[in-house]
Amino acid sequence: MEGTQRAIYPILVCQFNYQGHSDDAPHWALVVLISRHVAYIYEVLGGVDNFFFQRRRMETFVGSQTLRGGCKIGEIPADSLDFLEQKLRETPVIRQDPQWTSKTWVVHAIRHLQEYKIVFSHVNERHVRDELASDLKRWHELEDTVVERTYPE
């Protein structure tokens, strides 16, 4: 009897251009891509007085009007999604600090997940910023972003 193959999903940092954000200051979130269309988004929402962590499932990810690309930072087995969420909930959410943003939370989450070998060891803030800038350029030039390159049609 052949062994069953274990599903492994890519983990991305994705950037979104939500209302109040610009291409220069996009919202960042961690995303687990289940397919080209289905994704789990882990993010911090709100404002300086009421930031909060949220996980949501999106069924139309590649068609998102606010998605501006991303970069792959790791991989996770399908049966470890609950563990991932638990570790992300351990990443502090800071309020009352005007310098603290969704980007701050993502950078801290990356460092925390590296302790568990969920995020590649070479990933750091500079790497993420460089990759996001490259993918944003691809998006502006109507080229395939990380989602399309990860799950081509």
Rank of each mutant, 00 (worst) to 15 (best):
M58P: 00
Q86G: 07
S22T: 15
P92D: 04
E43T: 02
R95D: 03
I41T: 12
R36L: 12
S80D: 14
N50F: 04
V123A: 03
G20H: 09
L33N: 02
P98A: 03
A78R: 06
W100L: 00
E141V: 01
D97S: 09
Y42V: 07
A39V: 03
L136W: 10
V93Q: 01
R36S: 10
F61Q: 03
K103R: 15
S80P: 06
I34W: 00
S121L: 15
E125C: 08
H112N: 13
R36G: 11
R68D: 07
P26T: 13
R89T: 10
D144N: 02
G74E: 02
A109Q: 12
T101D: 10
E148G: 06
R89I: 07
V32A: 04
Y40T: 13
M58Y: 07
F61V: 03
K137V: 07
E115V: 03
F120V: 14
W105T: 07
E59T: 13
R89D: 10
V107G: 04
M58W: 02
T60G: 05
V44S: 09
E115Q: 12
A133D: 15
L84Y: 08
K72Y: 01
V128H: 01
P77Q: 09
H122F: 08
L33I: 07
G20T: 13
R56T: 15
L88E: 13
R138P: 05
V32P: 00
K117E: 14
L136R: 13
V107H: 02
R89Q: 14
T145P: 01
T91F: 02
S80I: 05
V107F: 04
I94W: 05
T145E: 06
E153L: 11
L81M: 07
H122Q: 14
W139D: 07
V147I: 01
E115A: 06
L67M: 00
V106T: 05
L67Q: 00
V119C: 09
Q99D: 10
H27S: 05
T91W: 06
E75P: 01
H122N: 11
L142V: 15
V38S: 14
H112G: 07
E115R: 07
E85T: 14
K87Q: 13
E141S: 02
G20F: 07
A78G: 14
P77F: 09
S80Q: 14
T150I: 00
V128Y: 01
L142M: 15
R57W: 08
S64D: 14
L67W: 00
A133E: 15
D135T: 08
Y42P: 10
D97V: 07
K137P: 00
V62W: 02
G20W: 11
I73L: 04
V32D: 00
D82F: 08
K117I: 04
E143C: 06
E85P: 12
G69M: 00
A133F: 09
Y40L: 13
D49E: 12
W139G: 04
T101I: 04
I76E: 09
V128N: 05
K117P: 05
R56Y: 12
